[in-house]
Structure formats: structure tokens, C-alpha cells
Design a protein around this nucleic acid. Structure first.
Lengths: 340, 340
DNA sequence: GTCTCACTTGTTAGCGTTCACAATTTGAAT
DNA sequence: ATTCAAATTGTGAACGCTAACAAGTGAGAC
């Protein structure tokens, strides 16, 4: 017969300490009105029995699971993965566990399904790594009492608290940097059309050109990967008037860099290139990439703080709060004054 | 007074359907002996009341939370992040939610702490993304009844079921490829000394050289990043006899590539370079990187399967099962026959 | 008709906490 | 000593579910 020893439970601790189970509970929850002596006695009993409280029981009665839900999309990429890390890091110190529900696409059904799974498991709140509004809209369907926050993309700001980077400002930083170096204008390789982040970067770039009175070259939206950068880079390489290219992210920049190299156009002597994100090894591209850094982990941490605040503002449903994080330009070797 | 509407509970469904709560429970758990007609009636009632069962209550009585714990290390990197994705993906289809506990270092305390957090939340099993034995050893401290599996690194094979890639085979593939191209020998830039994965790759590489009767150049262990590759690459670039370099991962390869470029040594005409991992954009390095691909997501999925099997083998504690995944060589543009 | 057995449903008792309230003790003020 | 409030502890009753058993139903065999 397999070992059938019962796990220690509050009553066992109570008996050993010579108190009632309620007193044990009070010690556990740091209730003020427990005599110091009793407290230590209980604590010792817990220690010696190696007692751990049963969170399921606690959740059942308090309706709070001390678990947070995370809805993630493309979490294998550096950005989302880092946000996840930041979120988990902050959640731990706040006494929460994080459960994840990744969505494979941004269809409404998939998102609702993720919310549903999380809410069945009684998460106290949800953070969505939400690059597209679809996710946030899904969140709104969440059963009332579930607090949500969107991070790292767009959400309807009137509906959900958000943490996002100032993409336009980042794009301005990059564009301004290139113009300041003396480039007549700056070309842009954009991300996917339906991602607000991609659009915001386009806007920041375009506005800066307008303000500087520089001509605004046509943009094409496509995707976030190196293949697209390579494809678009080949076109741009053929145009000898192109001297500065701002890419919507570092991966695109990698592709552009290669296309330029293949076309025999030197970076940064003939063409300058700027990325966005500052991925771990961007500093080792050829040449080292000048880029706009965003601190993903910090955004994750901030989003957790925001969620916790949102949760404690239970009775006071003011307008949703928003945090906008400022990006930072990292100048490396891929930018220089134009030739001639 | 804030809205105080109670959430629908099993009893409500039972009343509406005109049955007992137990019958509702049976329908929910797909118990065979429920009349078809009753079942549909209950199902309809659940639908119309938008009922979701309270998993905390269920967990309390069944002692199974349908949640799995994941202990992760450096989850922002592509490999671990992809495993996490694969695990979550498989867990979802198996009806489990995944809770994460990342460790910031591999100290014993940190790992024990993570296990503790997860077990308090009553996870049914734990998967550790465990690059170093420290993690696995921590797992062994887990309260009995908690099933553990280690993935993507080393664990004591006698103690815990594992899923790992055949690192030695991957290294052999890479080395063999270079030797077959006609290189006299192959240099290796290793990862960190205390990572079994790094050591296994060294062994595979060294064995292949031995077998081929090729000289075995000295190796240096250091870390997994591009900076190390760059540093070591500069040394190797100075040695004109070096014609082939096998790097312990793609990031190192990126650094090596740049060092060679800076030293004016052409890849692949003068020096061939091979990586390991096949990161998303390795195909857009300059030149496109020949590398050894490992399917991280698949490893994640396999580890989940293994865990589930392990859990159902409750009464039959045979020796731990192991899955070894074979890597695959992806030939791109960074390898060619030696000059001359 | 009645007996048996399989099928279907209902009843009761927990699972391990916390909550609300009652009961007791303490300590200082009268 | 007496009193009253504050501090401390204890007592039941939930929380929403499943397990175990009891009970009712109907069909087929005699």
C-alpha cells in the first residue's frame, strides 16, 4: 500500500501549538491582535511540521487566488519574452504567481478563449501583451471583477490602463539623429500595417521630416523580420540617392544591412542605418547598429504596478491610467554623415 | 452599495435544469452514466447562466489543480522562450494552465524558492528549463507527489525524466561538415564551462576530430554571447592557419563573424563558420549562417508529454524516461572549402 | 407478477481555509 | 474592588465542488 500520510494542515499546527485553527490563520495572515508569545509558538509549530497553507482553500473562501494571468502573443521574440520576464519578476515580489495563456493569432475567438481559461483559474487580474487592439477588446469581455492592463502595444486608452513606449518619440529620435548628421532625408522601412506600434513609428518619422522640411519618401508596410528588411533593402540599395534608412526594428535593420552589403554599399560611409528595440546582439551587427532602445523588462514591471494599483482602486473607477515609457537613442557604428 | 450579484454556481444550474448539483457535476466531468436528455438540459442551463466552474473548489477536493509549474532560467533568450511556448502550447491542449517561476540565478536557494512557490499554488507537476544540474537537484527537494521533468539541459538522468537535444551529435554534424569540405581541422569557441550543453558540444567536436585524425586545437570556455565570440574571434583571426570555426551557438558566431570581418578575413572564402541553435535571423547574418538547428518548441512539447506520462505512471516508479532530440544541420553561406 | 441487475439520480459529508461573531482575558481607569 | 474597553482567543458556518453511498427507475428473465 502506497504511503498515505496526510499532509499537515492548519488544524495539526493548531493542535501542536495548543491554540485554535483560527489563531494559526491569524498568524499566517499577520493579523495584528495575536500575542507575541502565541505567535512564536505557532510559528515554531508550523516550522517543525513543515506546514504550507493550502492556497486552493484560501482562494475558495477569499475569492482571491494571488495569481495573475498573462496573455501573450509571439512570446518567443525578445520583446514579449522580456516583458514577461519583467512582469514575473515584479509579480513575485508582490506575492503573486503568473499564469500564462499565449494566443497563436489575434483572432477574437483565440483571445476570448485565453481570457476564459485564465478566469476559470480565478486569476485576480490580467496583463495582456497586446500589440493589436483585438486583444484589448477581448479583455473587455472579461467577467466583471477581473482587472486588466495592456502592455507594449495598443489598447483602447479609454477602456483599459496601458503601458506603452512612446514609439513616435523613438522614431523622432532616430530621424532627428540622421538629419542632424546632415542627411537630406531619411527613408523608412515599416513594420506590419495593422500594428499600431508600426504606425506610430511611421508617424514620428514623418512628422520629423515635415518639421525639418525634408522630403518624405514613400513607405511600405510589411512585417517585422529580417527577410522583409532584406527584400526592401535591395530596392533601397539600388537607389543611389538613399543615404539614410530608419528601420522599424532591429531585425529589419539586420536584413537591410545585408542587402546593402550585397549591393556593395558601405555602411555607414555611404548609407546610415538605424534600428529600433536594441536586441541583445545588435551591438555586434556589421557594423554595430545605432538603434532606439526600449526597456521591455521595465515596461513589464511597470505594467504589473499599474495592474496592482488598478486592482486596489476597486471602488473608484476613475479614467484608466496610462504609463508612457520614453525610449533612448543608442548611437553605434551604423550611422555617419552622408558621403560627399 | 456596489453591485453584489453572486456569481452563478453549480446549485443555480442544478435548479434551472431541475436536477441535483451532483448531476451537474457529473455532466461537467463527463461521467458516463447520465441520460442524454438530462445532459443536454444541464448543458443548456449552464449555457444560459453562463456558468463556469470554480476551479479552486475543485482543486480543494480533488487535490489536482490542473496547473503545471514551469521553472525557467534566462527566459528572455530565444531558446528558453521557445521551449516555454512549446510547453504552454501542449499544456493547453492537455487541459492545463502553466504558471511560471523564473529564477534569476542558479543558486540552490533560488531554485528551492521557486519550487516552493509553485507547490504552494498546488501545481500538479513541474517542468524545469534546466541548463545546469543545480535546478534538477532543487527539484528533488520538491514535496513528494510532485512530478518533475527537466528539459533542455542537464539533469541527473537517474533522478528525473529529461528531454534534451543530442548536443554531441549536433557538434559532430557541424565538425564533420567542415572536415568534409576539406578543412584540415576545426576550431571551436565554447560556451560557459559549467553548462553541460557547452561541454557536450565540445566533446562531440573533439571526438569527431580524433576520429578523423585531425589535430585538436585548444578550446576556451566563456559565455554564450556575441561579445565573447567577438573577443575570441579576434584572436582566431590573427592565426592565419585557422580556416574553420565551429561556435557553440549562433550569438557567438555573430561575434566571430564580425571579428573576422574586421580583420579582413573573408567568410566563407578564407574562413568557414558554423553556429548552433538556428535563431530566427541567423539566415540573415553576413554571410547567412550555416548552423545546427534545434527545435526548441518541439522540445517543450515533448517535455510536457513526458511529464504527463510520468504523472500517470504514479504507482509504477520505473526508471525515469528520457527523450533525446536530434539536431539538424542547416547549410547556408558561411561555410565553404578552405582556400588554396 | 416478481426478481435481478444495470442505469440513472439524489443525499450527505467532507476538502482546508477565512469570516463573523461570541467568549474570554487583560489592563488601566475609576 | 469594580468597571469598561481593548486585546486576544475560540466557535461555528460558509466557500463550491467531488466522493461515496443510497435510492429510485426501468427492462428483461423466470
Amino acid at each position: 500500500m502506497p504511503s498515505k500520510k496526510r499532509v499537515t494542515v492548519m488544524r495539526d499546527v493548531a493542535k501542536l501549538a495548543g491554540v485554535s485553527h483560527q489563531t494559526v490563520s491569524r498568524v499566517l495572515n499577520e493579523h495584528p491582535n495575536v500575542k507575541q508569545e502565541t505567535r512564536t509558538r505557532v510559528l515554531e509549530a508550523m516550522q517543525s511540521l513543515n506546514y504550507r497553507r493550502n492556497l486552493a482553500a484560501r482562494t475558495l473562501v477569499t475569492r482571491r487566488s494571488h495569481t495573475l494571468g498573462l496573455i501573450g502573443f509571439e512570446t518567443t521574440l525578445f520583446g514579449p519574452a522580456s516583458m514577461l520576464y519583467g512582469i514575473e519578476d515584479a509579480a513575485r515580489t508582490a506575492g503573486y504567481l503568473v499564469s500564462i495563456a499565449t494566443v497563436r493569432n489575434l483572432e477574437r475567438r483565440e483571445v476570448l478563449d485565453a481570457v476564459d481559461r485564465l478566469s476559470q483559474h480565478a486569476v485576480d487580474g490580467i496583463i495582456a501583451i497586446a500589440p493589436k487592439p483585438a486583444v484589448t477588446n477581448g479583455l473587455l469581455q472579461a467577467p466583471s471583477g477581473l482587472y486588466c492592463v495592456a502592455v507594449g502595444g495598443a489598447g483602447d486608452p479609454d477602456a483599459v490602463p496601458t503601458v506603452r513606449i512612446d514609439n513616435a518619440a523613438g522614431a523622432r529620435l532616430a530621424t532627428r539623429h540622421l538629419l542632424d548628421l546632415g542627411h537630406r532625408t531619411v527613408h523608412h522601412v515599416a513594420g506590419p500595417h495593422d500594428w499600431p506600434e508600426a504606425q506610430e513609428r511611421v508617424m514620428g518619422w514623418r512628422d520629423t521630416l515635415y518639421e525639418a522640411g525634408a522630403p518624405v519618401p514613400p513607405v511600405t508596410f510589411d512585417s517585422w523580420n529580417a527577410e522583409w528588411g532584406h527584400r526592401r533593402g535591395q530596392e533601397l540599395a539600388r537607389d543611389r540617392s538613399v543615404t539614410a534608412i530608419f528601420c522599424a526594428n532591429d531585425r529589419i535593420a539586420l536584413g537591410v544591412l545585408r542587402a546593402l552589403h550585397e549591393a556593395g554599399r558601405k555602411v555607414p560611409e555611404e548609407v546610415s542605418v538605424v534600428g529600433f528595440d536594441d536586441m541583445p546582439d545588435s551591438g555586434f551587427f556589421m557594423p554595430p547598429l545605432t538603434t532606439v532602445r526600449q526597456d521591455f523588462a521595465e515596461m513589464g514591471r511597470r505594467s504589473l504596478t499599474l495592474l496592482l494599483e488598478h486592482m486596489s482602486d476597486a471602488e473608484d473607477p476613475g479614467p484608466p491610467a496610462h504609463i508612457v515609457v520614453s525610449p533612448e537613442l543608442v548611437v553605434r557604428g551604423s550611422t555617419a554623415p552622408p558621403p560627399g
